[in-house]
């Protein structure tokens, strides 16, 4: 288990390094930071001066290590528009994004779990299929479309809930429902598939042969096995969830990192964009690491390694 842990942590660090490298190339792709820092009328001399000040005249490899060092200190440069550190701009938006992401995650996973169990326990083929068709159908609706329909129904027509902003619990309901049900569809399909796989395993037959009933076998035997793939895949697909926050935040004007990134794009504020992307990726890597450790705790086969 410790070996597994150490290996996994090293792997995560390598991934973070990869993300940093990708960010470095993105920064380069964005164009000469010196030019971006100055107004359009700046002379060649001005540019050269700024280049020197920013250390852009040094060899690429030095700049690369410099970049890594800066990233590790959380220094992504200064926002081109607001004249404050890009990272601080991003950091103040993190709680909002986490609030939305975690609520949706718990909502989606929890509902998927309950519906998955219902699907296995109900004798009705109709109920099973109905749930599955709804899940598939929901997955085919993009987040922004679903969000707008929610706003139309609950804010415009019924006037029950606010359509934008963050603050009270009622602000959270629509965005969390929009993102959460999108996740629900994915997790439910996964959960159902892994339960279906487990149902065919020999140990299920053994459990029945002991005299156990269907519910006992489902909860006592199949569930612990079916949760394992669900946990991993849920971890991997967290990327979708975090990506989903970007769109959801835009639809509902939710003041999170995603919305900040989108706004910065229209303002061509590259340091903020890259700091935001980096931070979200970092969240993803960390959460995935936690998921994997959880997996190790659940599965004796991994624990032994």
């Amino acid at each position: 288990m410790t070996t597994f842990l150490i290996k996994r942590v090293l792997q995560s660090m390598l991934t973070v390094l990869g993300v940093i490298t990708a960010a470095f190339f993105l920064v380069r792709l964005a164009g000469d930071p010196a030019v971006l820092n100055l107004s359009a009328e700046a002379s060649g001399e001005d540019i050269a001066r700024v280049r020197e000040a920013l250390g852009l005249d040094r060899p690429m490899i030095i700049q690369y290590f410099d970049f890594i060092w800066n990233v590790l200190r959380g220094d992504f440069g200064v926002s081109l528009r607001q004249n404050v550190s890009a990272m601080s701009l991003v950091l103040e938006r993190v709680p909002a994004t986490l609030e939305l992401a975690l609520t949706s995650f718990v909502l989606g996973l929890g509902l998927a779990f309950i519906l998955g169990i219902i699907m296995r326990m109900t004798g009705s083929r109709f109920v099973r299929q109905l749930i599955m068709w709804i899940a598939l159908g929901r997955q085919a609706i993009p987040i922004f479309s679903f969000g707008l329909v929610m706003i139309l129904i609950f804010s415009v027509w019924l006037k029950w809930l606010p359509s934008l902003g963050r603050g009270t619990l009622s602000h959270l309901i629509l965005p969390a429902l929009t993102l959460g049900t999108y996740e629900l569809a994915l997790y439910l399909r996964l959960f159902n598939a892994s339960l279906a796989t487990e149902q065919r395993q020999d140990y299920v037959r053994t459990a029945y042969a002991k005299g156990q009933g269907k519910i006992q076998v489902l909860l006592g035997h199949m569930l612990p096995n079916a949760l394992l793939p669900l946990v991993t895949v849920a971890g991997i697909n967290l990327g979708l969830l975090l990506g989903g926050t970007v769109v959801t935040e835009t639809v509902f004007s939710w003041p999170g990192v995603g919305r900040l990134i989108v706004q910065s794009v229209s303002q061509r504020d590259f340091p903020v964009i890259i700091a935001g992307v980096f931070l979200i990726s970092l969240m993803f890597v960390v959460i995935n690491l936690i998921v994997d450790v959880l997996y190790g705790l659940l599965d004796p086969r991994v624990r032994m390694v």
């Binding site: 993105l26 975090l242 970007v246 990134i261 992307v277 990726s281 890597v285």
Partner: peptide
């Protein structure tokens, strides 16, 4: 580990 939408946005 870089969410697809974010990478594409960037």
């Amino acid at each position: 580990s870089i969410p697809r939408v974010l990478l594409l946005i960037a």
